[in-house]
Design a protein around this nucleic acid. Sequence first.
DNA 1: CTTAGGG
DNA 2: CCCTAAG
Length: 594
Amino acid sequence: MLEIGLAESKDSSLESALGDNCVNPINDVNHTLFNLIPGSRGGIPSASPNEETIEVDHLLVPPHVTRALDEDPMYLSSRSLENCLNVGGTPCSDGYYDQGDDYGILVADAEQVEIQALKYEFMLQEPEENENPHITCNLSCDCSEYLLEAVSAENFLDYPSNSEATVRNVEYTSQVQCMDRDVDEVKPDYIARTFAIAKLDHPTGAPDSTKFLSHDTLHGTFFQNASLEAQKWLKHELLLFDQQNLTELGNVCDLMDSAFLSSENEDDMILIPGNEMPERVFSSLVSMPHAGALVSSAAKNELPYGDGQAALDCRGTQEILGTTNDSVMTTKRLRKPTRRYIEETSETKPRSSYDRLKTSLISSKEKLLHARAAGKCRWSGAVQLLYQDYPGRVHSLRGFRRKRTKQLENDGKGYNLTPESAKISCFQDSELQNDPSDEHPARVRKRRKHHRQWTHSEVAKLVDGVSQYGVGRWTEIKRLFFSTSSYRTAVDLKDKWRNLLRASLADPANKNLVNVGYSADELFKLCKSHPFVEEKMGEILEGEMCQTTLCELKNNNAHHLHVVFVVPPCVGFRRAIHTHHLLYSVLDSHGSSN
DNA sequence: CTTAGGG
DNA sequence: CCCTAAG
């Protein structure tokens, strides 16, 4: 297990967190998914059957971070949040920002910036089998509200070559998160910069030891160096803030809104620092509405800062931080326009042989359900053949041909496409016009759709699956969690997850979510106060919509607690953590918590 | 065949 | 939920 200590931190306890950068208060613990998974270092099998699960994040919390845990350990009030965001020992709300100004002009002197303003989050992603561990370093400072930029620099962290673990290809991205708390309140609340992805190559080959870097190693090399550099950087950047009279942060919000709107054509671009940004970590980011665009805009220096507002401009940051040689601009998977799109946009596309083939198949009347002909519908100019292998589930010709071949091979087994069940209909243009209800393909499709309401237990399974296997491994999740639900395909799972995520992000209850992290002690208290956990430490519990696993394990005399919050991004989960999975791992190497 | 993403 | 390009 990776242990990370912050040299300046008075709190020796370590906190680990993995996941996105959003957290959130949870009112109803019943809606909280707790997973306490044992680490793997001690040979204790992880509760997470998949090693790709991002398992450990290390979040270093400034000692001044306080929360009203006693009152409501999971609830992060605005006030407590403010208190969490200290700069130079002064809460932002009390001085770092001048609240006398409408939008809180930043008045901080760079000299006031201290380490405590920083919050380092180090995330260790357990590598795939023979890969090197990836450590994600999130460096957050508190200044504003929105995810503003992503920058990358190679030289940000430069490690001595004689260090026990050679650190190279240090990469990071920076992001200013949208903390969008209460827009009616003082605007400048929070800027979280996340500097992510430091890749560490560990030279040793011992299977166990390569999984996680030792505490000493990181403490001795990574942090001491990183923190100093980070301090420099932060001071420098904040100095720019001041010098350039920048930051009417209220405007930043507007600017960001503009960025949201103006970056529509740019949201394909994602700044990937280095070549190995952990895909699943980053996917969480880019899957957020706006986030991709923001990252992209910032990466391209196109955020519409006004004059003198370049402090957060990534260019300036890059100048401070160093080169961007190792950065690559990566795009989302490029897709040429789909056939459907092409057909939509080409009005007078001549029939291809493919179309003629399909047409001929219509006349063959082979178990074809629909042949849609064009007119003014979205598939204008084309004929689409569909077949049905399941009530309501319709497939296109391509699949039909493939599966039909299978069917023949199976001697007619597998698909009950009898002439009775698979009616053939071929809509002519006139027919479509005669029946307005069929004119709209959406309408047609709607009729074909066989919708099955997602149950809570299904959602829970989906969330569990994602928490264990990660986003994107839908087939695996389906196989292990939906083996009895043949009507749920991997794509269905994917779609459902996407919808859940959207709903979560659209939920106003989640607008204030912010990941401030918990100290080991706080988290331990939280666990202890958790109604499920309180009396059942070490047991695996199942809640209605959540699963709680709390385990203790020992590792070299150290008492380790690994807590994984997995809260479904579901509308019903008010104030739920809306990240894909948020893992808080607590390493209490001193065993003081227990 | 699986995944990602647009529709 | 459907469809399909990319891998």
